[in-house]
Computed example of a mutant assay.
Amino acid sequence: MNRLSILAASIAATLTLVVGATDARAQGAYYIAVPEGRTGKASLITRSTPWTLRGDAYVANRAPEREIVLCQLLARNIGKLRSFSAGGMSLGDAALEKCNARAKAVPGAAVAAR
C-alpha cells in the first residue's frame, strides 16, 4: 500500500510539471524554466530579461542572450533547474548540467548530503 501511494504521488508531481510547462507554452512564452524546488519569487530580472512564475515554471519572452547564458543567469538566481527550453526545444542533459553548475547554493544542502 505504501509503495502505491508513493507511486501515485510521483505521477501526480510529474503531471503537475508537464501541465504547468504546457500552460506556459500555450500562453506564448519563448523560454520556459522549471526549477527543482519552490523559490518563493513571483518574478525576477536577469540582466534585461524579465521572468514571471506561471504555475511551476518561470517564463520569459525572447531575449538577445544565448539560451545557455539565460539558463545560467536564472539558475544563479533561483537554484537548480529541472528543465529549460527555448522556442520549444529543451536543453540536453549535458547543457542542463552546465547550466545548473551556476546554480545558487541551497541553504542546508551540504549538511543534508552528509
Rank of each mutant, 00 (worst) to 15 (best):
N61F: 13
L44A: 04
R76V: 06
A33Y: 06
R66N: 01
A63E: 09
R76L: 10
T52A: 13
S48K: 11
Y58M: 10
G55A: 04
E67T: 15
V34K: 00
E65W: 11
W51V: 00
L70A: 03
G55F: 07
R66W: 00
R76S: 12
E67M: 09
L70E: 14
Y58C: 03
P50N: 02
R47Q: 08
L74S: 05
G40D: 08
A60K: 09
R54F: 02
R38H: 10
L70P: 04
R76I: 00
L73H: 13
L70W: 03
Q72E: 07
V34C: 02
A42Y: 01
P35Y: 05
R38G: 15
P64D: 14
W51D: 06
V34E: 03
P50G: 00
S48Q: 14
R66H: 03
A42C: 01
A60L: 05
Y58R: 08
R66Q: 07
Y58K: 05
S48D: 14
G40V: 07
N61E: 15
V34Q: 05
Y58F: 15
K41M: 14
L74M: 06
E36T: 02
W51A: 03
T39L: 03
T46I: 07
E67F: 07
L70V: 01
A63L: 02
K41R: 14
V59Y: 01
I68E: 12
P64L: 11
C71H: 09
S43G: 04
A42N: 04
L74C: 01
I32Y: 10
R62E: 15
